[in-house]
Design a protein around this nucleic acid. Structure first.
Length: 233
DNA sequence: GCAAAGATTTGCT
DNA sequence: GCAAATCTTTGCC
């Protein structure tokens, strides 16, 4: 299987978002190969996008967003969860696609184990019984193993060590591969981005979330803090 | 130097 | 349906 075309990511981010749906996220190391079909992404476009980490210019955290396309931008959100982005557009222009959900194709058992490992690594005051989390994840349908940005990283064992990794290098342990025939999205739907209630319009309202409406792995309507804050405001 | 908030998920009420 | 967990980054003193 060949890696995803860098020229597609180098062009406009909004076009790239539609074309990357259906492509495969592959983690090719460890006991079992993990493959997931990308079914939901969000576009963060340029330094003037007030919802983007790039809105404050280049910082230590977001530096790779300013680099070449096809590179992984991985950050820690809320101090607990990692999020995976695919950098887009030419060097010097900060843009990326946040991978919000993938549909497990291969290695679902390993994804489940990785989810359990991640859950046990962050016990909280409610989590008095480790077996509870274990059983919860064990009972999840495969389609729900990576249906959220933090869950994608948990299921694929992605962390800050992958920041800056070239996802379009066939030798990378984590990479994006072309969609096999028939894997493209059946119907691409769009909507506003999730969890960016702090951003002013027009960025708040831009329909820059793209997903395959035919996939059962797409994440929920958006349960982020910012979204709730907006709802109660 | 310190305070505040975040591209989320979870478990209990 | 809500609040907590947790830590990096940012913005201001």
């Amino acid at each position: 299987m060949s890696v995803f075309a860098r020229s597609i990511l180098a062009a406009g981010t909004l076009d790239a978002a539609r074309l990357v749906l259906g492509a495969l996220l592959v983690h090719d190391s460890g006991p079992e190969r993990r493959v997931g079909r990308i079914v939901e992404v969000e576009a963060y476009v340029g330094g003037d996008d007030m919802a983007s980490h790039a809105r404050m210019g280049r910082t230590n955290r977001n530096a790779v967003m300013f680099g070449p396309p096809g590179v992984a931008y991985v950050y820690l959100v809320y101090g607990m969860y990692y999020c995976l982005n695919i950098v887009t557009e030419a060097s010097g222009r900060p843009a990326a696609l946040l991978v919000r959900a993938v549909e497990p194709i291969e290695g679902a058992a390993e994804m489940r184990l990785a989810r359990i490992r991640a859950a046990l690594a962050r016990p909280n005051r409610h989590n008095s019984d480790p077996d509870r989390a274990r059983k919860h994840i064990a009972g999840l349908p495969a389609l729900r193993l990576a249906s959220g940005p933090g869950l994608v990283c948990a299921a694929f064992s992605i962390d800050r060590s992958h920041d800056g990794l070239d996802l379009l290098d066939g030798n990378s342990e984590l990479r994006i591969e072309e969609a096999p025939p028939g894997y493209g999205p059946i119907a691409v739907a769009t909507g506003p981005r999730v969890g960016i209630g702090y951003a002013p319009d027009p960025w708040l309202s831009h329909a820059w979330r793209f997903y395959d409406s035919g996939s059962g792995a797409v994440s929920g309507p958006g349960l982020g803090v910012a979204t709730r804050r907006k709802a109660t405001a």
